[in-house]
Design a protein around this nucleic acid. Sequence first.
RNA 1: GCCCGGGUGGUGAAAUUGGUAGACACAAGGGACUUAAAAUCCCUCGGCCUCACGGCUGUACCGGUUCGAUUCCGGUCCCGGGCACCA
Length: 896
Amino acid sequence: MPQETFSSHYDHKKIEHATQQHWERTAAFKAVEDAGKKKYYCLSMFPYPSGKLHMGHVRNYTIGDVLTRYHKMNNYNVMQPMGWDAFGLPAENAAIANKVPPAKWTYDNIAYMKKQLQSLGFAIDWSRELATCKPDYYKWNQWLFLRMLEKDIAYKKTQVVNWDPVDQTVLANEQVIDGRGWRTGAVVEKREIPGYYLAITQYANELLSDLDTLDNWPERVKLMQANWIGKSTGVRFAFRHDIKGDGGELINDGKLWVFTTRADTIMGVTFCAVAAEHPLATHAAKNNPELAAFIEKCKSGSVMEADMATMEKEGMRTGLFVTHPLTNEQIEVWVGNYVLMSYGDGAVMAVPAHDERDFAFAKKYKLRIKPVILPEGLTSAQGQPRTASSAIPMESLWDGDWHPGFATHSELWNSGKYNGLTYEQAIDAVAADLAAKNLGEKKVQWRLRDWGISRQRYWGCPIPIIHCDSCGSVPVPDDQLPVVLPDDCVPDGSGNPLNKLPSFLNCNCPKCNKPARRETDTMDTFVDSSWYYARFACPGNDNAMVDERADYWMTVDQYIGGIEHAILHLLYSRFWTKVMRDLKLVSYREPFSRLLTQGMVLNHLFSRRSDATGIEWFAPEEVDLQHDASGRVTGALAKHDGKPVDYGGFGTMSKSKRNGVDPNAMIEQYGADTCRFFMMFTSPPEQTLEWSDAGIEGSYRFLKRIWAFGNVFANEVRSKLPAARTLASAKLPDDLAALRRETHLLLKQANYDLGKQQFNTVASACMKMLNALEKAPKDSAIAAEVIEECFGILLRVLSPITPHITHALWVELSYGDDILTAPWPEPIEAALVQDEIELVLQVLGKTRGSIKVPASADNKAIEAIAVASETAQRYMEGKPAKKIIVVPGRLVNIVV
RNA sequence: GCCCGGGUGGUGAAAUUGGUAGACACAAGGGACUUAAAAUCCCUCGGCCUCACGGCUGUACCGGUUCGAUUCCGGUCCCGGGCACCA
């Protein structure tokens, strides 16, 4: 291209438009299976089409794009697809607010967000696009669900849900605010309804042990998953009783079963607590109106674990007693609001001396406390344990003076035949004695619970079941799949509109052909996202869920998404993969070989609460901030009415909380390359980011300087380049050798950082390269050659982050036709060598200066140079060196 | 409450995770160029003491290990994420 047409102005719109057209023309990102090439499947978590992109999306997809382009330039056959996690609650909320069908709202959002993604220049193969709300996708959710039913992995049981008594509808946890319904303000009740579950617990062992094979997953994610699965070995045992029900039969065969991980403290049991729904509680409440009222109260409130764990622990006596299996003591039974019927057997033993929660409960209700574990530091040989002031009583009501602690590392005391045993020994002995009486045994308990997938919601994948009065719940036959969701309903907030839609509801029983009723519950949207990565690998197949193309692309080589998905989505996907493997649909055990968990992009949260309207969120641009003296945000006033709003600190950018930042304005003003560069430069990918656009100017300036240097190259450097390059054998003058050395050093560092997936320092390295280039002499042929090499390195290292400007310059400056197909640069060792190195000089660990030593000097020589140096002599004050520490290439420390 | 992260200048951060704390930027202040402005370029920029040379101190807080600690250990505080029906 002639020099005069190379604009001196950095016109990002023109450059980005032209470059994106070039990619489209060359189908640059179309991924084709090629067995002869190493493949790289790079996947970012697909977005929920909430309306518009926010900065978290820009961050996520830029990271994925940088990795995709970096691997493409490293000669991998790359595939980066994109799709839409299109079912979900926000579409129904929008329908309630605007009376638009969720389908229309969703598809409009997809169209808009797709444009936004395209304007950012991501290397996406759009021919693989999918949306989970389309029947050709969710058909396979239904198909696999039916296979799971056949294998007893899917089954039906009751589930506890949040029930809004005014709207007569099930609420999502998000719709429960301070124990009340979000729209009605009514106190939420717990309600038991039937639902379908997937038996993820059947895979608990494998989900736990296979974590060890995920070498390229962040440790913290594996740790969180392991804790979530929560394998613990304990003892399940029974208290005996002779409490009879109305028909004269023994309730639960005369046994009250409990599970404990602390069977070593079984001799310290002073009461039991059962859930409000437990048969013993129900029985006791029959003639006890006060207890019946308490049980009713327990049934109100949220079902969330966090609420359960933080709420005030309350209980009430049942008046019933059970018999301790080892001591035959009579143990009183309480109803506790903190005991969940859905966990274990819905009952717990209580040892107030050694369990924090039981201790608080015993204090509150003045119950007996019996310590059975010695305080730390004591042994049974020392007899009666004491606190500082008095002997610890064998058994007492709490008097506010002593506390035996909750540790497991001391030996038993006050426990009869078990005295002196350790934690492990005691559990073995207790389990053996219980087993001998046929009243208990060791049991592995998992914290993990089966996955309830039924949602009483419209905008989701229909569960393919038909209810028949004669045949019960009948699976929809495969040839009638998919069960298509009508896409023109408008939910109004009072339950699932499918229940009012005869054309959907009414059908015939597949077994007996009598009129029957279609299931109206839909699937949890986590089902949709549990296998989409496999479908990207084989789009368009209407005859199979996955095919042989997936064998080529799977597993996902790099998965990128928010840390907030560390447990649920990633665990469900791993589970789904294992089920598909057992059905012989796929051959791999794990879906994602390498995982990068991006830190969240946070923004200020502002809200206002009222009983009438529930909670109302304000966007940051709708309020004026108030600060305290030190500049911290303390509150805000709404711009439209000047009244205060509550400041909620920082939180994840989300549609529902209205604190997302739309990248459009920024792309419009500065261009995609600047936005991408700024996002990568501003913080490392895994770190939480409190959003601020301060600094975007600097990124823009940098790209302008890159463009300006391109002009310098075209106008001042190119003409000096010799026809035959001599750089490989040339002896360079010092300033050019230094430039070349610095560039290759920075390249080495950038390659190292890319391996670590730390992109902010890669961006820094590019800035440093440009700083060095701008200072370089440009007055000779050899200078032109060094600049040509160094700028070529800079353009390629920068290109995954800012692909448009680097492509344009690469072509303009005749480096090649397409930077995407250029080889990734590697540092040249010869450019890195130096004769002399500088070491830091410390005396007694304090930095006092530096010394220069020949690069070839050994430790002895370095020590001699260090001690002889003027600086060392000054700070050693004539004392002899006691010890000299040499850290090669870094420092010398003289200890006197 | 439980599990997992994080806390370094006015700001975003760096330090190949036991070896020069603050690279690279943003903001601010000063200067050059300009009729002026913008743009661009140069300089200063943790705190305290010092005319300066330089010294002391400093990586949330308290304590420890070490010749040497942002990095390791013990404790505390604060912030973020997850807690199974937001996605």
